[in-house]
Computed example of a mutant assay.
Amino acid sequence: MKKVLYSLFIFASATLFAQKNTKVKFAVLEGMVGTTTLFDSQKDYMQSKQAYKAASLPQKLKKFSFIADQGLTEFKLKNNAGILDNMSLAQFNEQYDLPKDTPVIIEGYEFKDTSTRIFAEIAQQIEVKDHNGVKSLFITTTAKL
Protein backbone atom coordinates (compact mmCIF):
# COMPACT_ATOMS: atom_id res chain seq x y z
CA MET A 1 0.00 0.00 0.00
CA LYS A 2 2.84 2.37 0.84
CA LYS A 3 4.41 1.73 -2.57
CA VAL A 4 1.15 2.61 -4.31
CA LEU A 5 0.76 5.83 -2.35
CA TYR A 6 4.41 6.73 -2.92
CA SER A 7 4.05 6.11 -6.67
CA LEU A 8 0.89 8.21 -6.75
CA PHE A 9 2.66 11.03 -4.89
CA ILE A 10 5.58 10.99 -7.36
CA PHE A 11 3.20 11.05 -10.32
CA ALA A 12 1.13 13.88 -8.83
CA SER A 13 4.16 16.05 -8.09
CA ALA A 14 5.60 15.45 -11.57
CA THR A 15 2.34 16.53 -13.18
CA LEU A 16 2.11 19.54 -10.91
CA PHE A 17 5.53 20.81 -12.02
CA ALA A 18 4.68 20.34 -15.69
CA GLN A 19 1.38 22.22 -15.63
CA LYS A 20 1.00 25.31 -17.74
CA ASN A 21 0.26 28.51 -15.90
CA THR A 22 -2.68 29.76 -17.95
CA LYS A 23 -2.90 32.95 -15.86
CA VAL A 24 0.22 34.29 -17.58
CA LYS A 25 -0.54 36.07 -20.83
CA PHE A 26 2.40 36.06 -23.19
CA ALA A 27 3.20 38.91 -25.52
CA VAL A 28 5.64 39.49 -28.37
CA LEU A 29 7.63 42.59 -29.24
CA GLU A 30 9.84 42.54 -32.33
CA GLY A 31 9.92 38.73 -32.28
CA MET A 32 10.92 38.53 -28.60
CA VAL A 33 8.75 37.03 -25.88
CA GLY A 34 7.54 38.85 -22.81
CA THR A 35 4.32 39.10 -20.86
CA THR A 36 1.47 41.56 -21.11
CA THR A 37 2.23 42.58 -17.51
CA LEU A 38 5.77 43.61 -18.49
CA PHE A 39 4.70 45.65 -21.50
CA ASP A 40 1.69 47.22 -19.81
CA SER A 41 4.10 48.55 -17.17
CA GLN A 42 6.08 50.22 -20.01
CA LYS A 43 3.10 52.05 -21.56
CA ASP A 44 5.06 55.26 -22.14
CA TYR A 45 7.31 53.44 -24.61
CA MET A 46 4.65 51.44 -26.42
CA GLN A 47 3.10 52.69 -29.64
CA SER A 48 0.40 50.06 -29.98
CA LYS A 49 -0.80 46.64 -28.96
CA GLN A 50 -2.89 44.10 -30.79
CA ALA A 51 -4.40 41.06 -29.08
CA TYR A 52 -4.99 37.87 -31.06
CA LYS A 53 -6.85 34.69 -30.26
CA ALA A 54 -4.88 31.47 -30.75
CA ALA A 55 -6.95 30.52 -33.81
CA SER A 56 -6.39 33.86 -35.56
CA LEU A 57 -2.65 34.47 -35.17
CA PRO A 58 -1.06 36.25 -38.15
CA GLN A 59 1.59 34.29 -40.04
CA LYS A 60 4.51 36.12 -38.37
CA LEU A 61 3.27 35.02 -34.91
CA LYS A 62 2.37 31.41 -35.75
CA LYS A 63 5.72 30.18 -34.42
CA PHE A 64 4.49 31.30 -30.98
CA SER A 65 1.20 29.39 -31.20
CA PHE A 66 2.34 26.97 -28.48
CA ILE A 67 2.16 29.80 -25.90
CA ALA A 68 -1.08 31.29 -27.21
CA ASP A 69 -3.55 29.24 -25.12
CA GLN A 70 -4.87 32.49 -23.64
CA GLY A 71 -4.26 34.44 -26.82
CA LEU A 72 -1.15 36.40 -27.72
CA THR A 73 -0.60 40.14 -27.73
CA GLU A 74 1.78 41.90 -30.10
CA PHE A 75 3.27 45.18 -28.93
CA LYS A 76 5.06 47.81 -30.99
CA LEU A 77 7.55 50.34 -29.62
CA LYS A 78 7.51 54.06 -30.26
CA ASN A 79 10.28 55.14 -32.66
CA ASN A 80 12.39 56.84 -29.98
CA ALA A 81 12.11 54.02 -27.43
CA GLY A 82 15.06 51.76 -26.75
CA ILE A 83 14.59 48.02 -26.56
CA LEU A 84 14.43 46.37 -23.14
CA ASP A 85 17.16 43.97 -21.97
CA ASN A 86 16.73 40.59 -23.62
CA MET A 87 18.57 37.29 -23.96
CA SER A 88 18.26 34.11 -25.94
CA LEU A 89 17.21 30.99 -24.08
CA ALA A 90 20.55 29.45 -25.15
CA GLN A 91 22.31 32.23 -23.19
CA PHE A 92 20.19 31.46 -20.13
CA ASN A 93 21.16 27.79 -20.46
CA GLU A 94 24.86 28.73 -20.67
CA GLN A 95 24.60 30.80 -17.48
CA TYR A 96 23.38 27.70 -15.66
CA ASP A 97 25.99 25.38 -17.25
CA LEU A 98 23.45 23.54 -19.37
CA PRO A 99 23.83 22.68 -23.07
CA LYS A 100 22.67 25.57 -25.27
CA ASP A 101 20.05 23.48 -27.05
CA THR A 102 18.29 22.21 -23.90
CA PRO A 103 14.60 23.22 -24.04
CA VAL A 104 13.56 25.80 -21.43
CA ILE A 105 10.28 25.65 -19.54
CA ILE A 106 8.60 29.02 -18.95
CA GLU A 107 5.46 28.85 -16.82
CA GLY A 108 4.97 25.23 -17.90
CA TYR A 109 5.36 25.94 -21.63
CA GLU A 110 8.28 24.14 -23.28
CA PHE A 111 10.39 26.40 -25.51
CA LYS A 112 12.26 23.99 -27.78
CA ASP A 113 13.88 26.68 -29.94
CA THR A 114 16.58 28.11 -27.69
CA SER A 115 17.39 30.86 -30.18
CA THR A 116 14.12 32.44 -29.01
CA ARG A 117 14.83 35.70 -27.21
CA ILE A 118 12.93 36.69 -24.08
CA PHE A 119 12.95 39.89 -22.10
CA ALA A 120 15.20 39.34 -19.09
CA GLU A 121 12.81 41.11 -16.73
CA ILE A 122 10.19 38.37 -17.04
CA ALA A 123 12.57 35.81 -15.47
CA GLN A 124 11.64 36.39 -11.84
CA GLN A 125 12.69 32.95 -10.64
CA ILE A 126 14.95 30.43 -12.40
CA GLU A 127 15.52 26.87 -11.23
CA VAL A 128 17.28 23.85 -12.70
CA LYS A 129 15.00 20.81 -12.45
CA ASP A 130 14.64 17.44 -14.08
CA HIS A 131 12.34 17.46 -17.12
CA ASN A 132 11.82 14.12 -18.87
CA GLY A 133 15.17 12.90 -17.56
CA VAL A 134 17.09 16.03 -18.62
CA LYS A 135 18.22 18.91 -16.42
CA SER A 136 16.33 21.95 -17.70
CA LEU A 137 15.69 25.54 -16.75
CA PHE A 138 12.30 26.37 -15.31
CA ILE A 139 11.48 30.06 -15.45
CA THR A 140 8.68 31.64 -13.45
CA THR A 141 7.50 35.09 -14.53
CA THR A 142 5.98 36.15 -11.21
CA ALA A 143 7.98 36.66 -8.04
CA LYS A 144 7.13 34.25 -5.27
CA LEU A 145 6.51 35.86 -1.92
Rank of each mutant, 00 (worst) to 15 (best):
I10F: 13
F11L: 14
K43R: 15
F64E: 02
D44S: 14
L98T: 06
L77K: 08
M87W: 03
L16K: 01
L98S: 06
L29E: 02
N93T: 04
L38Q: 03
T73P: 10
S13R: 09
K43S: 14
A51D: 15
L38I: 00
F66T: 09
D97N: 15
L89A: 05
Y109H: 13
Q95T: 03
L89T: 03
Q70T: 09
A55Q: 10
T114I: 13
A27M: 03
P58M: 13
L84P: 05
F111R: 09
L72A: 02
L38E: 02
F26D: 13
T114P: 10
F17V: 10
A27N: 07
I105D: 03
T35F: 03
D101P: 05
L84V: 06
Q42W: 09
K100N: 06
V28R: 02
I106A: 01
D101E: 12
G82L: 12
N79P: 15
K60V: 09
L77E: 14
A12R: 01
M87A: 13
L57N: 03
Y45R: 11
A18P: 07
F39Y: 04
S65W: 01
M32A: 15
I10W: 08
Q59H: 12
F11A: 10
D44R: 12
L72P: 00
A51T: 08
D85I: 00
V33A: 04
A51N: 14
K20R: 11
E94C: 08
Y52A: 02
F111I: 03
K23I: 12
V104I: 12
N21M: 04
L77D: 10
L72C: 01
L72G: 05
A14S: 15
V33E: 09
V33K: 12
V24W: 01
K76Y: 01
P103Y: 10
V104H: 06
F111C: 00
I105H: 07
T114S: 09
F75S: 00
G31F: 03
V104C: 08
S13L: 13
N93A: 05
Q91R: 15
A68Q: 04
S88Q: 13
I106G: 00
K60D: 09
K49A: 02
F17N: 09
S41R: 11
L77Y: 12
S115P: 04
N80F: 12
A14Q: 14
P58E: 00
K112G: 04
E74W: 12
K63Q: 08
T22V: 13
A68H: 01
F66C: 13
Y45H: 11
N86K: 15
T114Y: 09
Q95C: 07
G31E: 09
P103E: 01
N21Q: 09
K78I: 09
F9E: 15
A55L: 11
S48C: 06
D113W: 12
A68C: 06
K60F: 07
S115D: 08
A54V: 06
F111Y: 10
L16H: 07
A51Q: 11
A81I: 07
K63T: 07
T73G: 11
K20L: 03
S56I: 08
Q70A: 13
F92E: 01
E107P: 02
F75H: 05
A51F: 11
L38D: 04
L72D: 03
K49D: 01
